[in-house]
Amino acid sequence: MTMILGETTIPGAATLATMQLWYAAPLIVSVSLVCAATRHELMAPILQHAARFAVWVLGFMLLFMALITLMQRMA
């Protein structure tokens, strides 16, 4: 995949950006679990809350990705 920035073409840059997004996965898991565990005491509600929190964060990230992609296309 090729990314075009102004007049400059950077081969593989979009692939690199996509690969770097995977670094968010362990962070989302960790943050979701810790935040959920500070709201509940038992493991079952912690895991349920963490799953909801992770989905919410992913949705938020996807929304911003879509916005940034749209802005890039319009530029």
């Binding site: 935040c35 500070t38 709201r39 005491e41």
Partner: peptide, 18 residues
């Protein structure tokens, strides 16, 4: 982020779940 998360953990240890 690990350091900031531990602040939440400290609060939980001090006062229980929020």
């Amino acid at each position: 982020i690990a350091g900031l998360l531990n602040l939440l953990v400290i609060c939980d240890a001090y006062a229980g779940p929020l």
